[in-house]
Design a protein around this nucleic acid. Structure first.
Length: 522
RNA sequence: GCCCGGGUAGCUCAGUCUGGUAGAGCGCGGGGCUGUGGACCCCGAGGUCCCGGGUUCAAAUCCCGGCCCGGGCCCCA
């Protein structure tokens, strides 16, 4: 049966149909973003929805291939775009934008694709809207970007957001003073990023009063893997006596179910400390392998990074003060910190009250070189990030373009819609004049048809009823469609050049001549 | 790949524990009512109870396997 076959065909996993009520929300947000981007001087661009695979592979790891929709063509492997920054940098690198008058400000709104397991707020086809600011390396530019992002949220009506500010440039500067090259920096940054998020998860889980089955299991897995790392490191790097002696296996992790909340908390705290020490061993003793070379970070550098890791998250001024003190002997680092401080100051003066600085924020992305930031809407759950961006001064030149600094950010449009719903915001309905035209007899059908057309030409949204539909039904329908005015077309009034206009709200009706009709409809 | 929850009418779901007639609300169609209101009343259509196997006199219900959807872990440009 045809019906049976048709029912089997469903939208692919991770995709959605956007129904009229969804589109209303999407278009509202899109409109606000467009308008806000444009008041900040950005111009819209579009890039292809698919690109050569290498474009996205260039600055990403090996596993990336599995997370993209790719396809072979006679002209090489292609990929549906998983993000927009690379295509825009490619466009710049190709020389399509005149860079004489910098900075260049571009924005985009479009669909992207990632082949991953769908989750709340994570789809295989999703919408991104963002901006790229090309040609300025000033701190003011970074600050303006962040202000733009928060301004968009404010105009949409999303108020509960949380801004987290980081600076990949800072850690890169520190590492540079120890001759760590770019690839080594990336590895260390990603280690810090992972450790940070692991620590975050451990501490939030252990601070709960009660853990459900799933959470307990997650916690177990995390501490088990830490224990395993401990064993491995103890077995192989016994010569790092001073630190290794502080890393002791703890069998309590294997009977987590029996422990009290307090004891779990204490245990996790201890594991977190050891986790940090293991990083030192990894970087300074084990070394970082880049292709066939191994780089060992000086112990001194490791200890500095460790100290950063201790104090690197919290209220902006707090973290910056501590960091300033920590690095007072390094002129380069202080300069970067002062720059970050200046940005925070600008954000404060723009009215952004809650600014968290996390110096370990690496955004999992290798192309960032300076300030990075994320905006979260915590109530969204596991996927709470609604905006992310930062400075990527090297990316355009890596695509073979000129050496120009650049920075940008992107919103996840789908998550903005979810946040909008959670905040109970309904997009303001634009004012439209709406009528329902009802021919009351078969013989006036043509007149009613032409009247509807005439009203539409006046910019009025006119719905038509079929002749033969009873007036009762028509009024019923007007109510359901929320249409205020019903135009009743009958032969009696028509012979006088009039119709009956019924106001559903006031429950009143009167005769109106055809000529003045458009004027009385509001 | 792993963990948890779900799949019953067009939609939202109850029924599953404790096996025994397939249910509700909303929606849909018809009528009360072909020139005047959202209510109400009456009637009706609509189901492989996700699929396959097993247990049983008997399975939506219990057992095993699979598929799909959602949430979470991992990952996240």
């Amino acid at each position: 049966m045809l019906k049976g076959i048709a029912l089997k065909i469903k939208a692919p996993r991770g995709t959605r149909d956007l129904l009229p009520e969804d589109m209303e929300k999407y278009r509202f947000i899109e409109g606000v973003l467009r308008e806000t981007f444009e008041t900040f001087g950005y111009k819209e661009v579009q890039t292809p929805i698919f690109e050569k695979f290498e474009l996205f592979a260039l600055r990403s790891g090996d596993e990336i291939r599995n997370t993209m929709f790719t396809f072979e063509t006679g002209e090489g492997e292609m990929a549906l775009r998983p993000e927009m920054t690379a295509p825009i940098c490619r466009m710049i690198a190709e020389g399509k934008i005149n860079l004489t008058f910098k900075p260049i400000k571009l924005y985009y709104i479009g669909r992207c694709f990632r082949y991953e397991e769908p989750q709340a707020g994570r789809y295989r086809e999703f919408w991104q809207a963002g901006v790229e600011l090309i040609g300025s390396k000033e701190a003011d530019a970074d600050a303006e970007l962040i202000v733009l992002a928060t301004e968009c949220l404010k105009r949409i009506g999303i108020m509960e957001y949380e801004l987290i500010l980081g600076d990949v440039g800072l850690l890169r500067k520190i590492l540079e003073t120890f001759n760590a090259d770019y690839e080594v920096q990336n590895k260390i940054l990603s280690d810090i990023d992972h450790t940070q998020s692991l620590i975050n998860k451990l501490t939030t889980l252990s601070s709960r009063e009660k853990l459900d089955k799933n959470e307990l299991l997650a916690l177990k897995r995390m501490v088990y893997s830490i224990e395993e790392r401990k064993r491995r490191i103890r077995a192989r790097y016994s010569k790092a006596h001073d630190i290794i002696s502080e890393i002791k296996p703890d069998t309590r992790v294997y009977r987590l179910n029996e422990l009290h909340t307090e004891e779990i908390r204490e245990l996790v705290l201890q594991e977190v400390e050891e986790l940090k020490k293991m990083l030192i061993i990894q970087w300074c003793y084990e070394g970082i392998r880049i292709q066939d070379k191994i780089y060992r970070l000086p112990l001194q550098a490791g200890k500095i990074l460790l100290r950063v890791l201790e104090q690197l998250e919290g209220d902006a001024e707090n973290v910056l003060d501590k960091a300033m003190d920590m690095f007072k002997e390094s002129e380069e680092v202080i300069k970067e910190l002062e720059r970050l401080g200046y940005i925070v100051d600008l954000l404060r003066s723009a009215g952004i009250n809650k600014v968290t600085v996390n110096l370990g924020l690496a955004r999992g992305l290798e192309y960032y070189t300076g300030v990075v930031f994320e905006i979260h809407f915590r109530r969204l759950g596991a996927q709470s990030q609604i905006c992310g961006g930062g400075r990527y001064d090297r990316l355009i030149s890596e695509f073979g373009g000129p050496n120009v600094p650049a920075a940008g950010f992107a919103f996840g449009l789908d998550r903005l819609v979810l946040a909008l719903d959670l905040q109970g915001i309904t997009p303001p309905r634009r004012k439209v004049r709406r009528v329902l035209v009802v021919p009351v007899k078969e013989e006036v059908r043509k007149e009613a048809f032409l009247l509807a057309l005439r009203l539409r030409r006046e910019g009025i949204q006119a719905e038509m009823c079929l002749a033969g539909e009873s007036l009762r039904e028509a009024l019923f329908r007007a109510n359901k469609l929320n249409i205020r005015y019903v135009i009743i077309v009958g032969p009696k009034e028509l012979s006088r050049g009039c119709i009956v206009l019924r106001d559903m709200v006031e429950r009143l009706q009167r005769e109106v001549s055809l000529d003045e009709l458009p004027k009385v409809i509001t």
